[in-house]
Design a binder for these strands. Structure first.
Lengths: 321, 321
DNA sequence: TGAATTTGCGCAATCGGTTGCGCAATCCTT
DNA sequence: AAGGATTGCGCAACCGATTGCGCAAATTCA
């Protein structure tokens, strides 16, 4: 069934029916009611494609996910995507996902030039960010999930730096000072922030950091275990992990190798690490509402509502012990 | 830039330009080349929305993911989605995701009646499957990722039953007979299959199963740990886990509680369990190519190519020990 | 060489909504 | 009561591609 059918059935014009259903434009109360009733009882839904063509709006948002990030990871993206979907559904948008390989923005280009989406959510910001640069010059509205080094970009993020700083500070107060930090590649801004938070907590406490305690660029289970052993060898009494995947691996390695007295903390607090006995405290981030916030910000941007240049998603530190 | 621009610029009609670019219809070689060159140098891409309207095809496939499944899980969906995206990109499709809450198919209805997708991929089939029933009566082409109890439905699956049977049989051969099985809710067909595979391996080996060894309906870390302790109490000497999440939790629980001599095996072989020392063997499923196969099957269906009613994704059993 | 195909291309309708403009009819003003 | 403002609705032109049909020119066939 299409608009014309309803129009002729009700003795109205297509325009009036359209206005009645969309709620925009002047339509008499009586007429509007008749149209809506008819549409509902006959299960009419406007064809969104036709609507898109006429309005130059798709009501789709694109979510770009780097393909490498899919493996070796905690379920960060699926959880985040879930939040995005919730936000989208709330505002009558749909979600298109695209995975892009490192440095290859051809898929992104295709979606954009195809006009399949109104705006884009970029997950996992790199220090050198080709997708973001492309979208900027192409004038496509977008929001990054996670910080961007470019302060003109609208971004939604947990305050990673302060979270890590707080976690480190708390740990220092427990009179643990031989704290090791295990994080992923510094190409990712989030890891930069973790490092900065870590070091600045030490600075504020007036305590020195040993180089051997900072292990950067760790990816994959094997690397985590090596990093743990390096920290243990350097006589660390505490390990701060960049995310839950690292944390889970670290916990396993510590108990497997029979090391005693070393406790760990982590980020995100997903189910991957839930109930690990060695986990001392964790920065708790509700990844789902993180995605939700990002989705809402993008939609606000698309509907020309005012948005903050940077939105911080709340986090808190949970102490298991 | 639109078709008309190229047409007037090149002194051709819109139709000819359209045909030249789409490659369908009769166009002179010379003319076709001119059009394509012009389009390429000026970066023209046809507006997919307009094209969709005219062709009644969106070139989008919808992926439906149950929202509950997002938490408490291994990164199954993001990995699977990745494969779907690959298949889609290969055939010039895009991927729309929708999360639906248990029993609530309103979002699904919206997408379908909106005509935003040409077909749908249903992940996680339940024994009672409302989404599938809805799609069937709505005559929307779809494929299930995982088995369906309805044999008219096109489905892509790992041969879970035989995989689990094989794994069980191998374990029995290691002269372990006190094998416990820990799986999720039987509402999911995949868990039914695991159970069936498990029991049929026992039957073929002519060995009895103790009821206490089968723990069904396990969800969440706590439930896994309870299940493990139940198995240990019943003097199980081996634990077969339904998926990697269960496996990881089981491994942790076993080492935390200092139980010796009990080894475990699992499904999927994602990085969550990589390198766990207690893991003996694992059914290795490449979830990404699983998603890829599902995507390709759906696209074949959409393009009216012949498809198998049931496609099995390959798996193999890895022995770590 | 004349008839029958085939080829290359344009015309115009179509996909199904949206929206600016215009015109009556109705509603306030004072 | 008269003038202006507002309301309700229809007309028709879009949005940007696709495609059946038709026609002239080129090609093939007998």
């Amino acid at each position: 069934m299409i608009l014309d059918d309803i129009a002729s059935e009700l003795g109205l014009s297509k325009s009036t029916v359209s206005r009645a259903i969309s709620g925009k434009g002047r339509v008499g109360d009586e007429t509007r009611k008749r149209v809506i009733d008819y549409a509902e009882t006959h299960g009419f839904t406007p064809n969104s494609i036709a609507s898109s063509l006429a309005r130059s709006r798709t009501n789709n948002i694109g979510v770009v996910i780097p393909s490498e990030a899919f493996s070796n990871e905690i379920p960060f993206f699926q959880e985040c995507l879930m939040g995005v979907c919730e936000a989208a559904a709330k505002h009558n948008y749909d979600v298109l996902v695209a995975t892009i390989a490192e440095g290859d923005i051809s898929v992104l280009k295709r979606i954009v030039s195809n006009r399949k989406v109104d705006g884009i959510l970029l997950t996992r910001s790199l220090v050198v960010d080709y997708p973001a640069d492309f979208l900027k010059t192409a004038h496509v509205p977008f929001v990054t999930v996670g910080s961007s080094s470019d302060s003109n970009i609208v971004q939604v993020d947990t305050d990673t730096l302060n979270a890590c700083k707080g976690l480190t500070a708390e740990t220092l107060q427990k009179s643990k000072t031989r704290i090791a930090l295990i994080i992923g590649p510094l190409e990712y801004i989030v890891n930069q922030d973790r490092l900065d938070g870590f070091t600045s907590a030490f600075k504020e406490a007036g305590k020195p950091i040993e180089d051997a305690f900072i292990v950067k660029g760790v990816t994959g289970g094997k690397a985590v275990k090596d990093a743990v052993m390096q920290a243990v060898t350097a006589k660390a009494d505490y390990i701060l992990c960049g995310d839950d995947f690292i944390c889970a691996k670290a916990a396993e390695q510590l108990s497997a190798s029979g090391v005693n007295g070393v406790r760990i903390s982590s980020f995100y607090n997903s189910d991957v690490i839930r109930d690990y006995s060695l986990v001392d405290s964790v920065v708790n981030v509700d990844v789902r509402s993180y995605g939700f916030a990002a989705g809402e910000t993008l939609i606000k941007l698309l509907e020309h509502e005012p948005v903050e240049q940077k939105t911080y998603v709340s986090h808190n530190i949970l102490n298991y012990h």
